[in-house]
């Protein structure tokens, strides 16, 4: 429907609520992305404790390359430490030589130029004169169900597609519904009320409540099996890719379940 940078909105018709909810749940919890998972602190004389810095590093979104990296538990190396196919090393070496400095995410040096922080301007810590920070961080793929830092999206929502019925016979275009609507969905055109922006409607029913006619001349409902699906990527993956991965994962889960049932049947 529309796309703007990292956010995307889709108009989906012809699927039921459980299916769309399964997609939303998979986007949030199952689509993998990269995040810093382990940090070796070599030197830290800043005011923040090692673990706070490690946590802050973990929450930095990293650009993810799903095709060339494996999930650690599925990687052929079977090593706890990881290998080149399931781990990326990022290093940071900063010292405040003269005056206070702020260390930003852009100063992390990655061994793979494709796996870098989405934004260079995330502050990690402030260093006063003479303080030092030296560390090595290991980024891995993970899933949102294990930690929110592995969520590829910041929000993922769906809502019903609104349906607005205006009874032309009883409506006298008094304009009260136009005024009260918080999303400016309606507009007055001549002696008629018209829907200006259907998708903005939040189904709040204020327009129906304020209508002086009995029964109200305006009726707010929603379409069966039609949804507006909103997705806001952190920048780790493009939103299109996240959707495609979510369906792929759903299919995989279904196939695995079916094979388990086959085993039980036999």
């Amino acid at each position: 429907m529309e796309k703007d940078g990292n956010t995307m909105r889709l108009l989906i018709k012809g699927v039921d609520t459980p299916f769309i909810n399964a997609l939303r749940r998979n986007v949030l919890a199952e689509v993998p992305c990269m995040a810093i998972d382990e940090v070796v602190i070599i030197e830290n004389s800043s005011v923040l404790h090692d673990e706070i810095i490690a946590h802050r590093l973990g929450l930095i979104p990293l650009k993810t390359d799903l095709d060339s990296y494996n999930l650690p538990e599925e990687c052929s190396c079977k090593s706890e430490f990881g290998c080149n196919l399931c781990r990326v090393t990022l290093t940071l070496d900063k010292e405040a030589k003269d005056g206070t400095i702020t260390v930003y995410s852009g100063e992390l040096i990655s061994e793979n130029p494709n796996i870098v922080p989405v934004s260079d301007a995330i502050p990690i810590v402030k260093l006063a004169k003479g303080q030092k920070l030296r560390l090595e961080a290991y980024a891995r793929l993970g899933r949102g169900k294990d930690h929110a830092k592995w969520q590829p999206v910041s929000t993922c929502t769906y809502k019903y597609l609104p349906r607005i019925n205006i009874d032309a016979e009883s409506c006298d275009a008094c304009g009260k519904c136009v005024e009260i609507c918080p999303r400016k969905v309606l507009a007055k055109k001549g002696d008629k009320i018209e829907v200006r922006d259907l998708l903005a409607c939040s189904l709040c029913q204020d327009c129906a409540d304020v209508c002086p006619k009995e029964p109200p001349a305006i009726k707010i409902g929603w379409e069966e099996n039609a949804f507006i699906f909103g997705l806001e990527s952190t920048g780790a993956l493009p939103p299109e890719r996240i959707m495609i991965e979510a369906v792929k994962i759903l299919k995989k889960q279904l196939k695995e379940f079916a094979s388990q049932i086959e085993v039980q049947k036999a």
């Binding site: 699927v15 959707m243 369906v247 792929k248 279904l254 079916a258």
Partner: peptide, 23 residues
Amino acid sequence: LLKAVDKLLEVSEEFSKALEKAL
């Protein structure tokens, strides 16, 4: 159960095709 899974796979297949087309 298997019938339900088959139907769901059909829906997902249809959905991913429609999604790719829309994207």
